[in-house]
């Protein structure tokens, strides 16, 4: 019945926004006090680093790969940010640039040797974590002042995390979905062979997408220490799962280059809100993870239901 009035394709692309809105309403209903500048600011604080990590994951998913190392990588960036970037800024910047290049090199390796990304990134997750432990053996360090200042920015009327999320989403969306080279990047996920036959270098697209993932991983790590003010090698271990879940909630599909940057950011926001919501509902900490799993399943079930309409 529903399909007769609503175009399933439209409904599906609206699903990330819809689930975000529903969750927001549910939170406002259970905790009306959150419906304020400071309430939203508090709840969505960590949405910025998670959204950036989710976008990083999305770039990799676009070219039909999966990045299981983004969490430890964000942790490494946080460690470098809280040590070298604070003490010797120039060296810190060079190290971060090196990290991005390593990410692009990882993409090149995956492409050139035709390797499964899951295994390569799994291996790299050890490497990132190892370097992070060497850089900062125990939690600590200090985040540069400008990062702290940026992340605690007070924007009039609309809380900073929301402004930041909108800016990030729009910039990436325009770059990937509307630019002429963005088409090639997405095409490389949809039908790599066809893109290669039209004379494009798949090595280049792969390196660019992994390089972008590295760049957004760096942004994620820096924004994270802007909030925590200190670093820890394990600070972002969960980000791997968050980023995958966020990208999926945001409507990304695992193969075929079908992704949506706006959706990914919304997915990350939804994920962040879900954590707060569970605390408001006084869900026992034992069941927190379980409840997150349940939310993920619920959203996916909705998507399956809509897709079923689409097939008909």
């Amino acid at each position: 019945m529903l399909q007769r009035f609503v175009n399933p394709r439209l409904l599906r692309s609206a699903l990330p926004a819809l689930s975000f809105a529903i969750l927001l309403v549910a939170i406002f209903y259970t905790q009306p006090r959150t419906m304020s500048y400071f309430g939203l600011n508090l709840m969505l604080q960590y949405a910025v680093p998670i959204a950036l990590a989710t976008l990083a994951q999305m770039f990799v998913i676009t070219v039909n790969d999966l990045d299981l190392s983004i969490g430890p990588f964000v942790g490494l960036v946080a460690c470098i940010g809280a040590t070298f970037l604070y003490e010797t800024p120039l060296l810190g910047i060079l190290m971060l640039l090196g990290c991005i290049l390593l990410y692009a090199a990882m993409g090149a390796l995956i492409h050139l040797r035709n390797l499964p990304s899951i295994v390569v990134t799994l291996g790299m997750s050890f490497v990132w974590l190892g370097i992070a432990v060497l850089v900062l053996p125990t939690p600590g360090g200090k985040a540069p002042e400008y990062l702290k200042a940026l992340m605690s920015l007070q924007v009039p009327l609309v809380p900073f995390p929301i402004v930041a999320a909108i800016v990030i989403a729009v910039v990436v969306h325009v770059a990937l979905m509307y630019s002429s080279y963005g088409v090639v990047l997405r095409g490389a996920g949809g039908n790599p062979r066809a893109v290669a036959r039209a004379g494009w270098s798949l090595l280049k697209t792969k390196m660019i997408m992994f390089g972008l993932a590295g760049f957004f991983g760096v942004l994620s790590g820096l924004s994270l220490i802007g909030l925590t003010t200190s670093g820890d090698a394990h600070i972002a271990d969960r980000y791997t799962l968050y980023s995958i879940a966020g990208a999926i909630l945001g409507g990304a599909e695992f193969v075929g280059g079908r992704v949506s940057p706006v959706g990914a950011v919304l997915g990350a926001l939804t994920l962040t809100l879900a954590g707060s919501f569970l605390i408001f509902l006084r869900v026992s900490p034992d069941w927190q993870i379980g409840a997150q799993g349940a939310i993920l399943i619920l959203v996916l079930a909705l998507r399956a239901l809509i897709s079923r309409g689409e097939v008909r």
Binding site: L109, V119, G123, M124, S125, F126, W128, L129, G130, V133
Partner: peptide, 10 residues
Amino acid sequence: RLILTGLIII
């Protein structure tokens, strides 16, 4: 140890 484990897997 972590770095070498990872690199060797790769």
